[in-house]
């Protein structure tokens, strides 16, 4: 078998230019984890269902386990590592998950945080139904979603208060 031809991929990850010589079949999640060295993006199912690996590609939420790195060549990606404003400080969404016990084992959490961030940018005051629908592509096995839904409500409130 001839090894597939490698190519250079350039992606801006969390505002920083990155590049690597990769096989065409390299998944975006593996590019982020292995080539960029950001391991906050967790891979839960590798077939696009569980949502743990959710990142933003040019602002849109996407599953990095069913996206090839080469598809994002020249694009911008944001991961969970981009959310906190600094090492000492959490983002209001992260603080809300902490306060409402919106996480237990933490494995699905990066995907939920990224998805919540996208929801609240689009809809700053979502109803409970809108929250549950928007998050229904992310699976959590620990929390029963109680703390997560409450955290999104709290984060929405905090971000609105901060905006005024």
């Amino acid at each position: 078998m001839t090894p597939p031809e490698e190519r250079i991929v350039r992606i801006e990850v969390n505002g920083r230019p990155t590049s690597a010589l990769v096989e065409p079949r390299t998944l975006l999640c593996d590019y982020i984890r292995n080539h960029v060295g950001l391991t906050g993006t967790n891979v839960g199912c590798e077939h696009g269902v569980c949502g743990a690996c959710t990142v933003r590609i040019d602002g849109d939420i996407a599953r990095s386990c069913i996206t090839f790195a080469a598809q994002v060549d020249g694009g911008k990606v944001e991961t969970v590592e981009s959310i906190a404003p600094s090492t000492d400080e959490l983002h209001p969404i992260q603080r809300a998950f902490e306060a409402e016990h919106g996480l237990q084992c933490g494995f699905c959490t990066p995907g939920f945080l990224i998805t919540t961030q996208a929801l609240l940018e689009r809809n700053p005051d979502p109803s409970e139904t809108e929250i549950r629908e928007f998050l229904s592509g992310n699976i959590c096995r620990c929390t029963g979603y109680v703390g997560i839904v409450n955290a999104v409500k709290r984060a929405a409130r905090d971000l609105r208060d901060r905006g005024t």
Binding site: G40, V80, E81, A84, Q94, F97, L103, G106, L113
Partner: peptide, 10 residues
Amino acid sequence: EDPRLLTGEA
């Protein structure tokens, strides 16, 4: 546990 789990540091 939460700060490290919320930031991808875990």
